Simulated assay, not measured.
Amino acid sequence: MMTDARITIAAAELWLPDRRESAADVGSTPDKAGYDSVAVSDDIAPPDMAVHAATAALARAGWDGGELDLLLHAWAYHQGHDYWSAPHYVADRLGADRALPIGIQQICNGGGAALQTAAAYLMADPGTNRALVTTADRFCAPGFDRWRGDLGVSYGDGATALLLRRTDAGEQPQGLRLLAIASQPASRLEKMNRGQDPFSPAARFDGGQVDVRRTKKSYLREHGVTAFREVERESLRSVVTAALAEAGTVGDDPALRWCVVPRLRRDALESSYVPLLSELTTAKILDTGRTTGHLGAGDLPSGIAELMAGNLLESGERALVLGTGSGFTWSCAVVENPVAAAAQERR
């Protein structure tokens, strides 16, 4: 989706709990586990994590919750209550009484889907000027084994918040400019998280713990690893190519400085993402997940937050930020530090 450089990310925050659980703590090594450690929240529920991240983002931007027109909250796992709306909780805690709360449940690509949805609202609806995107997940026992519950990834707890606004023509934006965001689905892979299991009447009806490893192994026995890798490679190629084209840039543009990858296991990144991305772009790979683990719906927004917190983009530089989630869907955002570009336009 092209944004015509009309959407500004005014602030981005990544909230992480203080505690880390290391690979050694679970009888493994970083090489075998794919991570040095993962972030663990012992007592703070996901919606409250989202409130922490959003409060920090609002303070950084100098905004008030009451100024928000739209709030999208995304998650991958249990938010703390059944048959309940976490987005409305986040809005209420922030004093965002005017904001329309919407939940985005696209598993681990939720942050990318929420960002794309927020951008579409801002571009299409004149009454929507300021939007908040939050994500939050806590992958705790007894329902989830963060280290062994899935293939290719171990899970950390945390939350993110992005503040977006529509920028008027000629206005000097403060923050990062969202140039484009593209998504590529591969719905034929939904069975990887379903396996051969029949539909159940309630959550975890057939077992006390989520076991994605079992359903993925069932799928791979039936269809093969090679078939999945081919779909993954072509989907990743498609989404990156589309995002670059929509942003009006090319893979070897010297201004394209970073390619921020999802917080997957190191071996998963090195076997698929890194070779293909190195083929498609000369941007430097930025892997931020070794000490946090995969953050569920928060991988893509957390990549944007890392860019902003570390001032990793100089004036006029751009970055690709990637996310992926079961289903499957891949998303890719292109962001830019607009200062030099804006100055050049004025000249």
Rank of each mutant, 00 (worst) to 15 (best):
L322F: 08
L307K: 03
G316Y: 02
W147R: 05
G224I: 06
A5W: 11
D157A: 12
E171V: 13
A45L: 09
G127K: 12
D252H: 14
L68R: 14
E13L: 05
G95I: 12
V250C: 02
D211L: 11
F199H: 02
E13R: 09
D82W: 00
P275R: 14
L163I: 10
L269P: 06
L14Q: 05
S315Y: 00
D253I: 15
G103K: 11
A11V: 12
D299C: 11
L176H: 11
A169V: 15
R93C: 12
D92R: 09
L264V: 06
A11Q: 06
W75L: 12
H223M: 09
P87M: 12
I104P: 01
F328Y: 13
L72P: 00
I304L: 04
D197V: 06
V90L: 08
A283V: 04
A39P: 01
H294D: 00
T226Y: 10
G207N: 08
L300M: 10
Q105E: 15
D18N: 10
S200E: 14
P101F: 08
R93L: 11
T3M: 03
A243Q: 00
T291Y: 01
A76P: 01
L286I: 00
A86S: 11
F228Y: 04
A24M: 04
D64N: 01
H294R: 06
G65C: 03
V334E: 06
S218N: 01
A114D: 12
H294K: 07
Y89L: 08
V40N: 01
L220S: 02
S200Q: 15
E336H: 04
V274A: 07
A283Y: 14
H223P: 05
R221S: 09
I9F: 03
A297M: 09
L151W: 12
